[in-house]
Design a protein around this nucleic acid. Sequence first.
DNA 1: GAGCCGCTCTACAACGTTGTACGGTAAACG
DNA 2: CGTTTACCGTACAACGTTGTAGAGCGGCTC
Lengths: 337, 337
Amino acid sequence: MASTLHDVAQLAGVSIKTVSNVINDYPHIRAETRAKVEAAIAELSYQPNPSARSLRSGRTGLIGLAVPELSLSSYFAELADRMIAAAEQRGLTVLIEQTGGDRQRELDVLSGARRKMTDGLLFSALGLQQEDAELLRRPYPLVLLGERIFGGPTDHVTMHNVEAARAGTEFLLGLGRRRIAVVGAHEGEVIGSAGLRLRGYREALDAAGEPFREELVGYALPWHRRDGAEVTRRLIASGARFDALFAFNDNLAFGAMRALQEAHIVIPDDVAVLGFDNLDDAAYSIPSLSTIDPGLPEIVETSIELLVDRIAGRLDQERREIMAAFRIVHRESTPAI
Amino acid sequence: MASTLHDVAQLAGVSIKTVSNVINDYPHIRAETRAKVEAAIAELSYQPNPSARSLRSGRTGLIGLAVPELSLSSYFAELADRMIAAAEQRGLTVLIEQTGGDRQRELDVLSGARRKMTDGLLFSALGLQQEDAELLRRPYPLVLLGERIFGGPTDHVTMHNVEAARAGTEFLLGLGRRRIAVVGAHEGEVIGSAGLRLRGYREALDAAGEPFREELVGYALPWHRRDGAEVTRRLIASGARFDALFAFNDNLAFGAMRALQEAHIVIPDDVAVLGFDNLDDAAYSIPSLSTIDPGLPEIVETSIELLVDRIAGRLDQERREIMAAFRIVHRESTPAI
DNA sequence: GAGCCGCTCTACAACGTTGTACGGTAAACG
DNA sequence: CGTTTACCGTACAACGTTGTAGAGCGGCTC
């Protein structure tokens, strides 16, 4: 059924290598020869065999994208969606691998069989920790995403977590809110989205001379909608008073809004709500969610660019750490100024 | 860097083919030899080269999953998530391709370069139409998902759209609601999720002796949250009265609920809302969404099973059409009985 | 004890492609 | 006019694996 270079060469009356040269845009081919070959390719509707090509060339045209999961966290679905599109523009195919955010499965991804079939890996870690940094030293192109590890041996694309969380908190303070609950903290975490965002929150409080109130900190792991709802229910039940709520991602915020409304707390009058991620859904929740936009398009373009660069070039050049620009998106869950 | 069968063979003092036999669980190998080989494999941390393997065997271990998109429609993210996990259990890797629901891009997927690097395709079409059925006749394993084409040349896994929509409508009628708006109809569509669900809706009305009111039909394409909101706003603005709303998917329902609440219409007292898909989010919206569960796990398992079967076996055996079982999930957006 | 069978292992070829080396021709140069 | 240079095309080998065929050996059957 499937035709090969050999068939095309025979039909066009040239050598097999000439057909290969035509396909690979080798410059020194007579127009006449090229036309003959192209006609033969069309007639046989020839398509190169990618396995043979990869075997010979050492490149598969595949890149891995390791994420915790596609559903539940819309953030990773949006990330994957954009990554697939961005890769396609560069002639690459994305192969998605789900880790569940589990440390062991993340380690498995790093050395699993799929590393032999991809040219590089975009690695969005959630279970690894700063101490695991050296485990990222691998003999293949690897770009790290996320905020679990900093200063590791690989290129790294991330966001301004501390600054953004600080700006978000300052934004809420600027609205006159003084008792700002947070949802999504992780017990004892220093590095990682939760730790960094909590740090930004505290910095803003300190700068404004507001006390840090432990009773307003809601711990949640993982960061799904249901966790946001549960934590917020507990905060409400604890009797702690708060006039704003900063959720460390939009999913948590959606769940938190749910819990607030159950308790007949009015958003934003009684409690202003701010999220983080600017998911597509944030514009369509009820009320629509004010949130921090971490610059996903920039993250996607940059990380693919870095990976492509590593694939093409040397693995030993200096590592790069890039942070995307953020901005605060003001919607209905925070009062108009 | 990477070691080959050759290296392992040399280290173990056996032939290259013996190593291959060990790896592929060929039964007739002395325990002693096997141990030697396995030690050598471990020492060199040998991993087979998938390109060479594919070239020689004709199998890549990859299967394509074509969906319209991963973000925006959580349904496809959940589908992809489960499909990746189900494939993994069978030693397969899923390669996701996004078509945007565009007919031309769907056709491109059918004959694109990726078909040469996958052993089969799970194809969730949205842009193709019944007339395109014959275009699905392909020389590779192909399982069709969705409801755009019926009776085509391939295996097909779908859901009971008509029956489920009818049951959903009867459920609303059973609550005493008589003026049931629908959101998500497609102008003139007969086959396709929208057409079939509209048919189920009409069948239920007919059976109950209720008139079909054209003014209660909201047309929406695509089926994103924003479309549900827009259509519902128009329905409200038109002055048409309705006491229930049946959205043809959950995203539309979320958008519709948003529009209803904007207009201070109380759910479910003034208007009961029913969705379709049972997304994870449906349990966490405000109010939580009653919806029709189309049996996603069954769809995923079945379609992978069919595809694996085609890959392993003959392509010419009779085509199969399988429908997953559905059920109605009762939550807050419809009144307690 | 001749013949047969099953077990264990090996040699060789092949999958379809691309890199290397080189042969030949025509144009450009000194 | 001889030599270099650019251009166009080819032959061969190699990428790492698995299928096929078969060799060698021991034990079993009759």
